[in-house]
């Protein structure tokens, strides 16, 4: 699609709604991971509202594109996006993390549209490889997207998977790294340095692209380039900010796994509208 045809206005509106949902969900739940959910909003909006072929009426449609949230703690952004897309009612979002809810603390297959139960870090890229291999076997045009956290790059399995995907020539697989610079204990470069991230993936024979993870045009352009690449998987390093959109959360490691209170969220949401 030509860049001029990207419906930027609609995407921005969706991002605002999803950010609002995320804040309200975690405040209602009194726990959860807002920081890494807020950093990934534009990435999920680009996928679900522009790039991916999915049908909320047919979550099991065999030819659908698949999205694996490997950084499963960012479940709020996935659930909020699925709700905005019509997979689940938005009214269900307030049940996040509550007893007997489908919306578990981490993604769960009982939610229509959830493709993988991410949670324990490091597994999602492997599972995405399995889905991509199945797509090739079945001669489907469908694509597989996996969103990884940058902290998750510490996990050895990520690199087992990074080594395997080029072997199998999985050009139907796109990995996206949410490079928000913060993991649970602090700044990623202090806890376990990841740089040079792009070079690492390049050395593993991936097609590497880097984008501003809040710029829809850049994200979508990279997703298009990934789709046009033959015989190699693509990784998009999306430079983001943890807690994006909430000034006191941005760049604060404390908001990796801490929920703001309801009053604060109410005030925030007013300013966002």
């Amino acid at each position: 699609m030509e860049q001029s045809q990207i419906p930027i206005g609609m995407l921005i509106q969706k991002a605002v709604k999803i950010r609002t949902h995320i804040l309200e969900m975690v405040a209602e739940a009194k726990s959860g991971h807002p920081g890494g959910s807020l950093s990934a909003v534009e990435i999920l909006v680009s996928l679900y509202f522009h790039k991916m072929r999915v049908d909320p009426k047919r979550p099991d449609w065999p030819d659908r594109d698949r999205f694996v949230l490997s950084k499963g703690h960012a479940a709020p952004v996935l659930f909020a996006t699925l709700a905005e897309k019509g997979f689940i009612p938005t009214s269900e979002l307030k049940t996040l993390r509550k007893l007997n809810s489908n919306l578990q603390g981490h993604p769960d297959l009982r939610v229509p549209g959830v493709e993988f139960p991410g949670g324990s870090l490091g597994i999602g890229l492997s599972a995405a490889i399995g889905m991509a291999l199945a797509g090739k076997l079945d001669r489907r045009d469908s694509r597989v997207y996996a969103l990884l956290g940058d902290g998750e790059l510490d996990e050895g399995e990520t690199w087992e998977a990074a080594m395997a995907a080029p072997k199998f020539k999985l050009d139907n697989l796109t990995a996206i790294v949410d490079r928000n610079g913060i993991q649970q204990d602090g700044l990623t470069e202090q806890i376990m340095p990841k740089e040079p991230v792009g070079y690492k993936w390049r050395a593993f024979n991936w097609h590497v692209l880097e984008v501003d993870g809040f710029d829809f045009r850049q994200i979508i352009d990279a997703l298009d380039k990934a789709e046009n690449m033959r015989n190699r998987p693509t990784v998009i390093i999306a430079h983001t900010v943890k807690g994006k959109g909430v000034s006191f959360m941005e760049w604060d490691p404390a908001y990796h796994g801490k929920a703001p209170d309801k009053d604060t969220v109410r005030k925030l949401v007013e300013t966002m509208r």
């Binding site: 065999p62 698949r66 694996v68 493709e115 993988f116 597994i123 999602g124 890229l125 492997s126 599972a127 995405a128 490889i129 399995g130 889905m131 991509a132 291999l133 199945a134 797509g135 076997l137 079945d138 399995e157 998977a161 395997a164």
Partner: peptide, 11 residues
């Protein structure tokens, strides 16, 4: 992990 993905895709 790959086996998980293959199974999720019907294999």
């Amino acid at each position: 992990g790959i086996a998980s993905g293959l199974a999720l895709a019907g294999k």
